[in-house]
């Protein structure tokens, strides 16, 4: 196990934060941790005018890139799509000379309204969350990043009522800490549906 501290870029996209029950607490919990650069995209670009140079420099300065968002129509909120369209330029992120992202880790931390059993072949969403995130997985592939299975909270609309949030935040901080210290081994987790499943072993290490 290599223990070199890595820097995490947390790109948070939530357009209605006053209604947020899970994402905002998660973002706040991450803010207080070391080696994390938390970016509230809707706060920084309320007009969707993304500063390409600034965002590309941020990507260069970090080794782990996280998209944090509530799942909207099986995809990211619009600003994150805008961010991809603008920042991941030819010659920077892909193409013959576009290797700025090579070797970085990429993770989606998302919340989904449906229950986990809905995200199955026999559930009403028909596909697993991992399958639905294929466009992002392929974006990571094309840009040379290692796509980690998503960190997901299902049934998010009732998570507060069922008191599932504190545990989720604890897992989230554990994951972030492991990512900074490079304790997540890509080869070990790459086949998982969600990275939540891989946290049990981390917890055991901690004990």
């Amino acid at each position: 196990m290599i223990d070199a501290t890595r820097k995490i870029l947390l790109l948070f996209a939530h357009p209605a934060q006053t209604r947020s029950e899970v994402n905002l607490p998660l973002f706040k919990a991450a803010k207080d941790m070391p080696n994390i650069t938390p970016i509230d995209l809707y706060a920084e670009y309320p007009q969707h005018r993304i500063n390409i140079d600034r965002e590309q420099q941020r990507l260069r300065d970090h080794q782990v890139i996280i998209f944090q968002f509530p799942l909207y129509w099986y995809s990211t909120p619009s600003i994150l799509k805008e961010w991809q369209d603008l920042v991941l330029e030819y010659g920077f992120a892909y193409g013959a000379e576009g290797d700025a992202l090579k070797g970085k880790h990429f993770l989606c931390a998302l919340t989904a309204g449906g229950a986990e059993k809905a995200y199955r072949a026999d559930g009403y969403n028909h596909f697993t969350i991992r399958e639905l995130l294929r466009p992002l997985e392929q974006t990571a592939n094309l840009t040379g990043m290692q796509f980690l299975p998503p960190f997901a909270l299902f049934g998010s609309r009732s998570a507060a009522e069922e008191s599932r949030i504190p545990q989720h935040i604890e897992d989230w901080q554990l994951l972030l800490e492991a990512l900074t210290h490079n304790r997540i081994i890509y080869e070990d987790v790459k086949g998982l549906n969600t990275i939540n499943d891989g946290l049990t072993s981390l917890k055991e290490i901690k004990r």
Binding site: I52, D85, L86, E89, Y90, Y94, G95
Partner: peptide, 14 residues
């Protein structure tokens, strides 16, 4: 003009 600029015409050879 920078935003939404498509890759060069010949980029597939990359």
């Amino acid at each position: 003009e920078r935003e939404w600029t498509p890759p060069p015409k010949d980029y597939l050879k990359d």
